[in-house]
Design a protein around this nucleic acid. Structure first.
Lengths: 91, 91
DNA sequence: ACATTATGCAAGTATCTACTTGCATGTCAA
DNA sequence: TTGACATGCAAGTAGATACTTGCATAATGT
């Protein structure tokens, strides 16, 4: 799961799914090309989605020939539970 | 910073520093060899500390020939601010 | 049925990353 | 000073990883 967060494209995918839940692979490709500029191929994003899904950060549901993807932030709780964030001011 | 969290040895270092603040490189080597079993070399851990420090997760202070390391969890706040963790039950 | 659309799989490649190796720097104690 | 201790730097190597390429599967529309 930490590995899944390590890639900037995957983080952009999480951002996209948070902005708009239930996107398909093609929607994600289009919107990532728009916003992030970096034109990642469909195959690349498909593989990224696989990694994110295996990490539990993304769930998918199949409907016909479409596959919709949803963000799941609950695995991130492990991070702040493992290393609690102090309430002090940031430098 | 996400990159820094991606390596299991680096996460073990963060655990160690949380358990006991202000450890030197040698202390970390010894305790990581004890607990985590995986005997990482001194040079390897030194490089890991460099990565963690660059990510802002570890701060260091030099005193004589010793260099003490401290955990800083505040960068982790960016994660939960970027993708807020829902309060729902975990499956 | 046929073409199109949306996704999946798998091998190959180029880059990145963690680790090692060997030497250098700086500090303290006798 | 001499020697031991604690750390730093930098080049080289093995393995991991992101991306591509090419084809396969499956569902929808006309």
């Amino acid at each position: 799961m930490f590995q899944a967060l390590a890639d900037p494209t995957r983080r952009a995918i999480l951002d996209e799914l948070q902005d708009r839940s239930g996107q398909t692979l093609f929607e994600l490709c289009a919107r990532l090309a728009m916003k992030h500029g970096t034109g990642s191929s469909r195959q690349a994003i498909s593989q990224h989605l696989g990694v994110l899904e295996e990490a539990g950060l993304v769930h998918s549901r199949r409907e016909g020939r479409y596959k919709f993807h949803d963000l799941d932030t609950s695995p991130l709780r492990d991070i702040v539970e493992r290393w609690p964030v102090t309430d002090e001011e940031r430098p």
